[in-house]
């Protein structure tokens, strides 16, 4: 790995991550190191194990082996909600909004761990409750405004157009106050114009919120366009890593994506 900041502790350091489902090896000996502020892509064909890596980072699956260090703390064994609270936000491949709730509520839910009042404050309607609620509303509205969603504030989430739903999901992830944002195929189902907008947005969010971003993507053009480093997986293993240029020319990657014969034919 051509890492510039040698010596500095990486924000996220994954070592030897392995996951078995029964006898099936979904991810094997996965290593990845991300420094603060980087935008890293993780690509690979369908079924390569990308989402499984995400699910292990966020604690939805317990890794069979390996460590996931975030800010120097090993996250393995933490519950998903605790991992989110340490500063990792994520979106989902197939949008998972709270579809019967309003857009504002969707974002407000993500503020729950930071609500700063207990259930008894809410039952007794203390002044702290009203103050914190107001703060949460303001923060949530600010996020919606940044994501250009203000006018949808009181809409029910499922009634929004697809692109807007993706943005709500990102707003919701940002509400978790993450240092690291995990985006799972954000461009899935988008047309080229929307993909352009999405890439703009990812840049914008990264600058404005000082985020480190790890991005799973299926479509090469998105990753090539915005990522600084790329890791390529196939069949649960890393087959290549480097900057977009190196990846583009890597024969192994072409083979993984197009198959052996296709690589030759191309």
């Amino acid at each position: 790995m051509n890492d510039i900041n040698v010596g500095k502790t990486p924000l996220l350091q994954i070592e030897g991550l392995t996951k078995f489902f029964g006898g099936l090896r979904a991810v094997s000996d996965f290593n990845l190191s991300i420094n603060s502020g980087e935008l890293v892509g993780l690509i690979g064909p369908n079924g390569a194990g990308k989402t499984t890596v995400f699910n292990q980072i966020t604690g939805i699956y317990l890794p069979t082996k390996g460590t996931v260090k975030f800010n120097g703390i090993n996250l393995v064994g933490f519950e998903p909600h605790e991992i989110t609270r340490t500063g990792i936000g994520r979106t989902f491949q197939n949008i998972r909004l709270f579809s019967n709730l309003s857009v504002l509520d969707n974002v407000r839910i993500a503020f729950h761990p930071q609500s700063g009042y207990s259930m008894f404050d809410s039952i007794l309607s203390t002044s702290r409750f009203f103050k914190r609620e107001q703060e949460i509303i303001e923060k949530a509205q600010e996020l919606l405004e940044v994501m250009n969603l203000s006018r949808f504030q009181n809409e029910i989430a499922r009634n929004l157009p697809y692109g807007e739903q993706r943005r709500v999901e990102i707003a919701r992830a940002l509400a978790c106050q993450p240092q690291l944002l995990l985006l799972d195929e954000p461009a899935a189902g988008m047309n080229p114009k929307e993909i352009m907008q999405l890439m703009d947005m990812i840049h914008f969010v990264r600058e404005n919120f000082k985020l480190t971003i790890l991005l799973i993507e299926h479509q090469m053009r998105v990753v090539m366009g915005i990522c600084e480093y790329i890791t390529v997986m196939d069949f649960g293993e890393i087959i290549a890593r480097g900057n977009p240029k190196e990846i583009q020319d890597n024969p192994k990657v072409i083979e993984a994506y197009l198959g052996k014969g296709a690589a030759n034919a191309a």
């Binding site: 800010n71 703390i73 393995v76 933490f78 340490t86 978790c176 106050q177 240092q179 919120f209 000082k210």
Partner: peptide
């Protein structure tokens, strides 16, 4: 943008 990351005790995994 403040961070909510707090130093946490490493969990005891049973």
């Amino acid at each position: 943008m403040q961070s909510v990351s707090k130093p946490q005790k490493p969990p005891v995994i049973v």
